[in-house]
């Protein structure tokens, strides 16, 4: 009788534990199926952006977070991911370099800036300005560089320009160090 009472009292707790256990094992199964696919698609997306940026690319190698872009056997450029801090949060930027001093181009991988204002940093009108820019000139015009900010998105635009410039300098030091 006592055992039965105790069981009755414990039932809600046992039930909750069982439900949580079932849910967690279900999620582990779904995660096991979807996660490899999610990672593969993310890699493919970056690869697509790289080949848009370097149409001549035949292969690339990835070492210490720097992509080296090859056309046949010649290295024709480098690429890496820079992270800027905008209003809404991190802005992830794929930066391509032509050589050790010049930007090839940039692509915004992801951002969470305000739609209609800050989100304009992802549009070609803004990103095209970085093509063939000297790294030292990558800054907003009002900060003495050559990049025009987007109306209503000065902070987002500055976050991108500053992240591209400072990360490029770091990575170039790494590339030269090799």
């Amino acid at each position: 009788m006592q055992v039965r009472d105790a069981l009755k009292k414990a039932f809600p707790v046992i039930l909750l534990t069982v439900v949580v256990a079932i849910c967690v094992s279900l999620l582990t199964a779904v995660g096991g199926i979807t996660l490899p696919r999610i990672e593969a698609m993310e890699r493919e997306r970056i690869l697509g952006m790289l080949s848009d940026m370097f149409p001549d690319m035949t292969r690339y190698s990835l070492e210490e977070e720097i992509y080296t872009i090859y056309k046949d056997e010649d290295a024709i450029g480098y690429a890496f991911i820079a992270v800027g801090r905008g209003y809404g949060g991190d802005v992830n930027i794929l930066v391509g370099l032509e050589d050790e001093a010049t930007v090839k181009g940039i692509t915004i991988i992801s951002h969470t800036e305000t739609p209609g204002l800050g989100s304009k940093i992802a549009e070609d009108l803004f990103t095209d300005q970085f093509a063939s820019a000297d790294i030292d000139d990558v800054a907003l015009t009002r900060d003495g560089g050559r990049i025009d900010a987007v109306t209503g998105a000065t902070v987002s635009a500055r976050a991108v320009a500053d992240a591209v410039r400072s990360t490029a300098r770091e990575k170039i030091d790494l590339i030269r160090g090799d």
Binding site: L16, C23, L27, V30, T34, L35
Partner: peptide
Amino acid sequence: VIIATLVTVVNLLFN
């Protein structure tokens, strides 16, 4: 718990 599990599944599938 049930709703959170379903949302996680949808989140993973959409991703």
